[in-house]
Design a binder for these strands. Structure first.
Length: 295
DNA sequence: CACTTGACCTGTCCGC
DNA sequence: TGCGGACAGGTCAAGT
């Protein structure tokens, strides 16, 4: 499920594969949640080049030579696929850039889950896929982009300098009544963690996700602060998490899945103490933890 | 303001 | 074999 590391992986893939290419044609297959005036799409996307790909939290930003930007959120099931002209002709599998993975053996593009398709001048294509229609694409001019990112009120990302222990301590004091789980999932507190990495960070810090933030000792808070940084750093290094490897670029994407500590490991043994991993519901989310070594 | 809950969706899995 | 229901999770709006 796309969290910061998966979005970062997608951004890196896009930078490598589409930056510099000119968009010859845009095909909107499912217009729902593809935002922006049609006239702006025609004048500012058609014919423009991809000049850079950045990211803020879990939001992807594709900057175009027209100065306009495409802001994409993959939500739970969104994914980006790339296919070169040669691969298309030989019916070879597309390259998975990031997002949710599916278990299909063979992928024909476009298909029923294709929301938008960007045809580049060299014949390569970028596909935005999303089976559940939760994800979206916005087309923004520089002012709109600024205002939109501002409106998200995102907190610092764990690897930012602004995510200092002092910041985290003050956050814990202000939000003492909520659970660790709810706090770490809150993008306005810390941007980038989602359900998987929150469970992973709590396990690393030896803390139960349901613990009230106000009950944490200084040592607990420091361990949790450090765990957020370390888990995300490791996941980015491994190219994020993907549950299936059908589309991935060889050896570069989704390796975190095999290294995960507790997420999706209900009844398996804890990698630290061998006790069985439990699953509960905290802050409305499926939550995995070790009842023995997380207190 | 802080916090929780439900809605948005559809594919997958489990029990009957 | 098919069908109903629970579940998956990121964000936002509406609720307490």
């Amino acid at each position: 499920m796309p969290e910061l590391p998966e979005v970062e992986t997608a951004a890196a893939g896009l930078r490598q594969l589409v930056v510099g290419k000119r968009i010859k044609q845009v095909i909107i297959h499912a217009p729902k949640k593809i935002f922006g005036q049609q006239q702006d799409w025609i004048t500012s996307v058609h014919g423009a080049r991809f000049v850079d790909v950045t990211r803020r939290g879990k939001w992807l930003i594709l900057e175009l030579s027209s100065q306009w930007s495409l802001v994409i959120h993959l939500k739970m099931t969104g994914q980006l696929l790339f296919q070169s002209a040669a691969n298309r002709q030989q019916s070879r599998q597309p390259i998975f850039l990031g997002g949710h993975t599916m278990r299909h053996e063979q992928v024909q593009l476009p298909n029923t889950h294709t929301r938008a398709e960007f045809v580049c001048d060299d014949g390569s294509r970028l596909f935005f896929q999303d089976m559940r229609l939760f994800g979206y694409v916005h087309l923004f001019n520089p002012v709109q982009l600024h205002d939109y990112i501002e409106s998200l009120r995102l907190g610092p990302e764990p690897m930012d300098k602004a995510f200092s222990f002092d910041y985290f301590s003050k956050l814990c004091r202000r939000r003492s009544k909520t659970s660790i789980k709810a706090l770490l999932l809150d993008q306005s507190a810390i941007a980038g963690l989602g359900n998987i990495y929150v469970d992973e960070a709590c396990h690393m810090a030896r803390l139960r996700p349901s613990r009230r933030v106000g009950s944490l000792t200084v040592a607990d808070r420091r361990a949790l602060w450090q765990a957020c940084k370390r888990i995300l750093k490791q996941a980015i290094k491994l190219g994020g998490t993907s549950c299936s490897d059908h589309y991935r670029v060889e050896g570069t994407i989704g390796e975190y899945w095999n290294k995960r500590r507790v997420y999706g490991r209900t009844n398996e043994s804890c990698p630290r103490c061998r006790h069985a991993i439990a699953k509960t519901r905290v802050a409305g989310r499926g939550t995995h933890y070790c009842p023995n070594c997380q207190v």
